[in-house]
């Protein structure tokens, strides 16, 4: 009979509609603004309404998530910042849209290059968030950030990031990518011990 298909289809929408309320009842009002509920609501087990109430609640950012790159620095006891970057230039060489500019430091007396950047620019109006710079950096000095709340009213002044704007402490990196951080630190430590062993022998 003509129309049965439509009625059956509407049954599906009705099911979706009812499911939303059943799920609300199941959570007894604790469905929103509740990290535990959010984890289930946004997984393959999700039922009912699928909405994230951004900005009040946020999706869990996976560790690998990438947005704009940032530079890492380490702080010693005296509070002096040491860039991890050695201005080797690999990130500028792999960058597909060529949005990285690096000025290498040099010793004012001898003119020899010093392994740290005087300046480091990223034009975020060109950056394609591909993450190749972070992937191929041999010193773990440039990483991809999780911060996506960067909207601005003006781009002429704000959208070329300089070194100061890009630099973030290692502790921040450890907080957004804990397992990557642990793995890299272990590899660095292993390298250090191997170097030390070589020096002794």
């Amino acid at each position: 009979m003509y129309g049965i298909g439509i009625v059956r289809g509407l049954g599906v929408t009705l099911k979706h509609f009812l499911e939303t309320y059943l799920d609300d009842i199941r959570w007894l009002g604790r469905r929103y603004y509740n990290p535990e509920a959010l984890a289930i609501r946004q997984s393959p087990k999700a039922r009912g309404a699928f909405t994230v109430q951004y900005p009040e609640e946020r999706l869990v950012t996976p560790e690998e998530f990438r947005y704009i790159p940032f530079l890492l620095y380490e702080e010693d006891e005296a509070g002096v910042k040491h860039d991890r970057c050695t201005s080797c230039g690999i990130c500028a060489k792999v960058c597909p849209p060529q949005c990285i500019w690096i000025v290498r430091s040099s010793n004012p007396e001898t003119g020899r290059p010093i392994p740290e950047p005087t300046e480091f620019f990223i034009d975020i109006d060109i950056c394609m968030n591909c993450g190749l710079c972070a992937e191929y950096c041999p010193f773990d000095a440039i990483k991809m950030d999780h911060d996506f709340e960067l909207s601005a009213y003006d781009r002429q002044s704000a959208h070329i990031y300089n070194k100061e704007r890009l630099s973030k402490p290692v502790s921040y990196y450890a907080s957004i990518r804990p397992s990557n951080y642990e793995r890299e630190e272990a590899a660095r430590a292993a390298k250090e011990t191997a170097k030390a062993a070589k020096r002794e022998s």
């Binding site: 230039g89 060489k93 792999v94 500019w101 000025v103 034009d123």
Partner: peptide, 19 residues
């Protein structure tokens, strides 16, 4: 047009940033 092929040479080590 900047150069025939990437990577462009003026990005490093004397990268004076420009639009």
């Amino acid at each position: 047009f900047e150069e025939e092929g990437k990577p462009y040479k003026n990005r490093w080590p004397e990268g004076s940033v420009y639009r």
